[in-house]
Amino acid sequence: AGKPIKWRLQTYAGAALAEHVIKPSIDAFNKAANGEMEIELYFADQLVPTGELFRAMQRGTIDAVQSDDDSIAAPVDVSVFGGYFPFASRYSLDVPALFNHWGLKEIWEEAYNEVEGVTWLSAGAWDPCHFATKDPINSLADLKGKRVFTFPTAGRFLSRFGVVPVTLPWEDIEVAMQTGELDGIAWSGITEDYTVGWADVTNYFLTNNISGAWAGSYFANSERWDELPEHLKTLFKLCMDSSHYYRQHWYWAGEAKLRTQGTKMKLTSIPDEEWATVEAEAHKFWDEIAAKSDRNARVVKILKDYNASMDKAGRPYRYS
């Protein structure tokens, strides 16, 4: 058999979250690989700080990465669509539908083929993006001046409403809420708020979301990926899919359950008419992003077509 192939995979999620979103699939992979290969899983900033993660993967310090394109500042134009691109999706199934059936997959492959050393492998959906805050938010005015931990692109968008986006290492967020560096978090749905302990340091959960599902990917160092034998590549693809699938039902069940039965956070809402202005602003934002490159324009067009088609399809895709 020889020595097993060893990979270091670093996820951008912290340990508490990774326990759900990736660890089971990696454990299963290691078991099924039957000693031929072993993936060691590392969490947010554990070996390499998130900002250096892409470079580290390119140089082989890390063999594979799970993250959104946005958080690791992937050097491709389409990285802005990773993470929470405002109002790009309504449900978590939108993400795999867009990638596998509406052409985003091909675009991503094209984009990452232009970057040496890193292979993009697969994208999947996570949770919707809500605000968790110390003080209640009942109107857009309440967002003004709030220092909020969020994703880079989402942050740039939210700053139009007076939000002050802050980026810190993931593991430091809970403490940063307590040391006063942050007033809130716009990084996840309520499932994560409870799972990772943020529900303990915030009081309010805003039911309006700026995106229905986070889109994140798996990447690998190209050399490491290419040298894997076919059957291990296949196994790794199954492993990614199993992680994608688990997140689909874990978040879906969790979001509803914790909103209705959770006791740590009070729910508040911004009225629909007021929130509609945010969505309208997002569509302007889309056009600005589309203007940045031809490839971005193609992605935005797909998003528009997709959403139009959902509207047209009616129930259960859209109810209004």
Partner: peptide
């Protein structure tokens, strides 16, 4: 022990330190 990829760990720590705001 890490292989070629390990050669940048020293500097990578400096970025970690930078982000350690306290």
């Amino acid at each position: 022990l890490w292989g070629t990829g390990g050669s940048e760990m020293a500097f990578s720590a400096s970025m970690k330190l930078m982000k350690w705001y306290p």
